[in-house]
Computed example of a mutant assay.
Amino acid sequence: MNTAVTLGYVHGYSDHEALRLGCQADTLAGLLHAGTAYPAGSRVLEVGCGVGAQTVHLAAGSPRARIVAVDVCEASLVQARARVAAAVPRARVEWRRADVRDLPFADGEFDHVFVCFVLEHLVDPVGVLSGLRRVLRPGGTITVIEGDHGSALFHPPSRYARAAIDALVQLQATAGGDALIGRRLQPLLDSSGYDGVEVCPRTVYVDRTRPALVDGFTRSTLIAMVEALREDALAAGLLTPMDWDRGIADLRRIADEGGTVHYTFFKACAVNPPRG
């Protein structure tokens, strides 16, 4: 994640977070990557590739495209190389350490840009999206995927569980990001100068009849993301220790029999118009 344009990646860079990102990407690959396949020979830029969790699925879905994956964190790039090499041995991926505000590429060098779970952490998403137009050829496309924590609905209901999720939203805002950014993709891309913006909600619904999602999404993605921020939430005074622990316990109940969860991701596609 590009720390140059954010006040801090709220989830951190721990091994636990790397595992969570991989589980999230693998669990949601069919949902989020459906409809994303780039032609042979096309040049694709993945911005903020992190540990390569999404790069794996980009490479698998477009095996003959030429992917350049960039991130500001060298340690994440090391993990990304290893992850993709193990999962997609013949993947055509070039790895570059780069700042998204100052990309070391020629004007119009890429046919497509892919941005997943990056804008939510940026101080100036419009500025970044506008800047990406320089390296994207006229007529090229951009794909942006983001979540929206405000879309999380669950049963059994719990004000403590809701407060724990809201604490994550507040922590991300304090770090300069926006955990509710999914609902803003259309106006963000429109304000950045793109044409033909289309946004499609991609909804996850989980109950006991979908055990793979109970484990992969409810437990290993949503709950893991929230509970990892316990110390930060308490240090910020957002909840008392007792209320936080009650909230996490209630979140875990939604993974039990009788529990359900609903969450919406937003996938936007747009075109870089001719310069002039």
Rank of each mutant, 00 (worst) to 15 (best):
residue 235 A to Y: 10
residue 130 S to Y: 02
residue 39 P to T: 05
residue 168 L to G: 07
residue 89 P to H: 05
residue 102 D to C: 12
residue 189 L to N: 12
residue 133 R to K: 11
residue 255 A to H: 07
residue 75 A to N: 12
residue 134 R to Q: 12
residue 206 V to Y: 08
residue 94 E to P: 02
residue 181 I to L: 15
residue 252 R to K: 06
residue 173 A to G: 11
residue 198 E to I: 04
residue 191 S to F: 09
residue 239 L to H: 02
residue 96 R to Y: 06
residue 162 R to V: 02
residue 225 M to H: 09
residue 212 A to H: 11
residue 58 L to W: 08
residue 234 L to A: 01
residue 189 L to H: 14
residue 74 E to P: 04
residue 75 A to R: 15
residue 219 R to T: 03
residue 128 V to P: 01
residue 112 H to D: 05
residue 268 A to I: 14
residue 129 L to R: 05
residue 126 V to G: 07
residue 274 P to S: 05
residue 268 A to N: 15
residue 232 D to A: 09
residue 98 A to E: 06
residue 272 N to R: 15
residue 79 Q to V: 08
residue 182 G to N: 06
residue 125 P to A: 01
residue 111 D to E: 13
residue 117 F to K: 02
residue 142 I to K: 04
residue 258 G to A: 03
residue 210 R to C: 14
residue 72 V to L: 15
residue 64 R to M: 02
residue 257 E to V: 14
residue 24 Q to V: 00
residue 20 R to I: 08
residue 273 P to M: 07
residue 263 Y to Q: 13
residue 251 L to R: 02
residue 149 H to C: 06
residue 184 R to N: 02
residue 45 L to I: 11
residue 123 V to K: 10
residue 121 H to P: 05
residue 100 V to T: 15
residue 123 V to T: 10
residue 144 V to N: 10
residue 96 R to Q: 13
residue 228 A to N: 08
residue 34 A to I: 03
residue 261 V to D: 01
residue 183 R to T: 09
residue 117 F to Y: 03
